[in-house]
Structures are given as structure tokens and as C-alpha cells.
């Protein structure tokens, strides 16, 4: 059996006296699509943020492509080059145009020439269906467009794995679909991804596995069909009844 691309072992994380993660074990195989869900404060954002070293864990071990994230800044940098991340608040650089946003990291971090980076930027803007917005500034775009730019920006690094941290939570309802469509297309293309989301529709459509987190622990881990039809834990049932009732 192949090695998992992300391997999380017994990870603990405290914020002061609050324990955000309490012994997480999780493996993600190449090409696998994982959806992480759970009530707010359950530690799901912290978990994905640990996967590219934005948070440092207090105990346990995470390896990405066999690189240990605890191995110092060089290791973290190497991991980040192969892991793209999309944030809830987009975090586009507001002082740069869309194209500049996309080209910055490929030129500065991967050493691509400006021309190559621009070509790459065009390619991924087309992939998220907004090639015409290249010259605009982020704040001139709608929320949905901004998030799609953010996805394209992460893709421009041609990562092996994509992490999504509640990509649609900051969006107005009418813009959620355009972003979900892009994510679903990526999934269909075989990208390995870990996605924190409340969108159960997305989870049902694309996830190979749903991981349900509560109070910093994995309560349930199952394929969507099983997860939605026959949840084992009471906490999962409670959670599902709350978000699916209307």
C-alpha cells in the first residue's frame, strides 16, 4: 500500500488553556478528497492550518510527502510549496492587481520568469472562469470572484495538495455556488484536497471521506453515503439534524 501524502499522528494543540486539538490521527492518500466538518470551535480550522505549518502543534507529528513539519523552517517552506491554501477571508493582496497576486509567489518563491508566471496566471484564471479580471484590483471584484482568484493564486504554485479553510463562509449566499463549482471541478480533476466546510452539498458531491470533528477529536470518519445515512455517533446525529433540518 502507498504511503499517505499527509499523515497526522496524535496531534495536540493548545491556545492558552483551551485545547483546540486533542489527539488527532488522520491520513490522506494521493488523490483523496477529504471534507472536514464539525461545530464551530471544534478545531477543524486549526487542523488544516497545522497541515501547512501556519499553526505549530504542541505535541504529535505531521508529515507531508514524508517531510516532517517539525523539521525547521526549511522543511516548512518545502511543504508549503506543495500545499496550496484557500482562506475563509480570501486574503488576497489588496494593493496588487489580480495578475500580480497570481504571479508574486511563482516568481519570488519558485523562481519563474515573469513571462512564464503570467502565462500560468492566465491559465488558472481561465480555470476559475475569470480571465477577464486579470488587470483589476481585488477590492473591485465581488466576494465570489475574489475567492476564485484566491483559488487560482494557490493553483499557480501548482501544488500537489489543496487545503480549503471554510472557503464559502464569508460569501453572500448568491455567490457560494460559483465557488463551489470551481472546487468541485478541481475535485473532478483528481486534485488531493482537504476542505473544511459547512456545505453538506459539496461534501456529498465530492468527498471520498468525511471527517467529523468535535472538541478537538475525530468523532466519526466515513464515506458520505454512510455518514449521512447511518451516522454512528450521537454527536454526529445531533450535528446533522441541526444543519440539515431546513
Amino acid at each position: 500500500m502507498a504511503e499517505p501524502v499527509i499523515k497526522v499522528e496524535q496531534v495536540h494543540k493548545w491556545f492558552g488553556s483551551h485545547q483546540a486539538l486533542a489527539g488527532i490521527d488522520l491520513s490522506v492518500m494521493a488523490g483523496e478528497r477529504i471534507v472536514v466538518c464539525g461545530p464551530s470551535g471544534s478545531g477543524k480550522s486549526t487542523l488544516v492550518r497545522c497541515m501547512n505549518g501556519l499553526e505549530t502543534m504542541n505535541a504529535g507529528k505531521i508529515t507531508v510527502n514524508q517531510i516532517d513539519l517539525a523539521g525547521g523552517s526549511a522543511a516548512v517552506e518545502q511543504v508549503r510549496k506543495s500545499v496550496g491554501m484557500v482562506f475563509q477571508q480570501f486574503n488576497l493582496f489588496p494593493h496588487l492587481t489580480v495578475e500580480e497576486n497570481l504571479c508574486l509567489a511563482p516568481t519570488r518563491s519558485l523562481g519563474l520568469s515573469q513571462a512564464n508566471a503570467q502565462e500560468r496566471a492566465r491559465k488558472y484564471l481561465e480555470r476559475v472562469h475569470i480571465p477577464e479580471q486579470a488587470g483589476k484590483f481585488p477590492l473591485q471584484l465581488s466576494g465570489g470572484q475574489q475567492q476564485r482568484v484566491a483559488i487560482a493564486r494557490a493553483l499557480c504554485m501548482e501544488p500537489q495538495i489543496m487545503l480549503f479553510d471554510e472557503p464559502t463562509s464569508a460569501l453572500d449566499p448568491e455567490m457560494i455556488k460559483e465557488v463551489l463549482d470551481v472546487i468541485a471541478e478541481l475535485a473532478a480533476d483528481g486534485m488531493t484536497m482537504v476542505c473544511v466546510t459547512h456545505e453538506m452539498g459539496l461534501a456529498r458531491a465530492m468527498a471520498d471521506r468525511i471527517v467529523f470533528l468535535d472538541e478537538g477529536q475525530i468523532v466519526e470518519e466515513a464515506p458520505p453515503s454512510e455518514f449521512f445515512k447511518a451516522p454512528k455517533s450521537d454527536r454526529t446525529k445531533q450535528f446533522l439534524s441541526r444543519i440539515l433540518q431546513h
Binding site: F87, F93, L104, S109, R153
Partner: peptide
């Protein structure tokens, strides 16, 4: 979030300062 975004893109420290 801006600094996190730069980090997630593995932008080197000095470039993060200079460009972001």
C-alpha cells in the same frame, strides 16, 4: 491574514516584507 497568505504561498521572509 495577509502574512498567513504570504506564508502559505511560501514567499520568503524578505519578499513577504517587501511585496506584501
Amino acid at each position: 491574514g495577509q502574512i498567513e497568505a504570504a506564508d502559505a504561498l511560501s514567499l520568503p521572509d524578505k519578499d513577504r516584507m517587501r511585496f506584501v
